[in-house]
Simulated scan of single mutants.
Amino acid sequence: MTGPIAIYVDADACPVKDETYRVAARYGLHVYVVANSFLNVPREPWIERVVVGDAMDAADDWIAERAGPGSVVVTADVPLASRCVKAGATVIGPNGKPFSESAIGMALATRNLMQDLREAGTITGGPRPFSARDRSAFLGALDRAVNRIRRGTA
């Protein structure tokens, strides 16, 4: 890995921004909080708010253009996760589940199937509520990811 580790947060609906800041502070990492509209972020020199236009996928495009080896992307957006995994980034969902090269195809297929079912009028119920267990799993996953990158084993 060359250069410092960067964390890119797909922030519009991200429930783990505070946890991301906590891990980044521990390791001295730079965090980019990317959103389509203004979000409050802590006033720290290592946290950068990035407000992109309101065009479709503008935040995703901004992140995908910059993510690569040595960076971590925090997102629940499966197409964005796919783009970033293909670029060599470490990608983690807010629930702590990593997106990997071997699993991204199935995640995309499942997402597309559920979208097709919703468009056909099938009630799919949606995701389960975000829990304290999810938050804890995310903290552990982000910490492990940063350490793997630092050791050069990511």
Rank of each mutant, 00 (worst) to 15 (best):
M1E: 12
T2N: 13
A6K: 12
I7G: 11
I7M: 04
D10P: 09
D10K: 02
A11N: 04
C14V: 09
C14W: 06
P15D: 14
E19G: 06
E19K: 02
R22G: 14
V23G: 06
A24H: 08
A24W: 01
Y27G: 05
Y27M: 04
Y27V: 06
Y27A: 08
L29Y: 01
L29F: 01
V31E: 13
A35E: 11
F38R: 15
N40M: 06
N40G: 15
P42F: 01
P42I: 06
R43K: 12
R43D: 13
W46C: 08
V52L: 07
G53L: 04
A55I: 01
M56P: 11
M56R: 15
D57V: 00
A59F: 02
A59M: 03
D60G: 08
D60C: 02
D60I: 01
A64E: 11
E65F: 01
G68S: 04
S71T: 12
V73P: 11
P79M: 05
A81F: 02
A81I: 01
C84N: 08
C84E: 15
V85K: 00
V85I: 14
K86T: 11
T90S: 12
V91F: 06
V91P: 13
I92M: 10
N95T: 12
G96H: 03
P98N: 12
E101T: 08
S102H: 10
S102F: 03
S102C: 06
G105D: 13
G105Q: 12
A107I: 02
N112Q: 11
L113I: 01
M114T: 08
L117K: 12
A120H: 10
G121K: 07
G121R: 05
T122R: 14
I123T: 15
T124P: 10
G125A: 06
G125M: 04
G126I: 01
A132C: 01
R133M: 15
A137C: 13
L139N: 10
L139A: 14
G140S: 13
L142M: 14
A145E: 14
N147D: 15
R151H: 10
T153W: 03
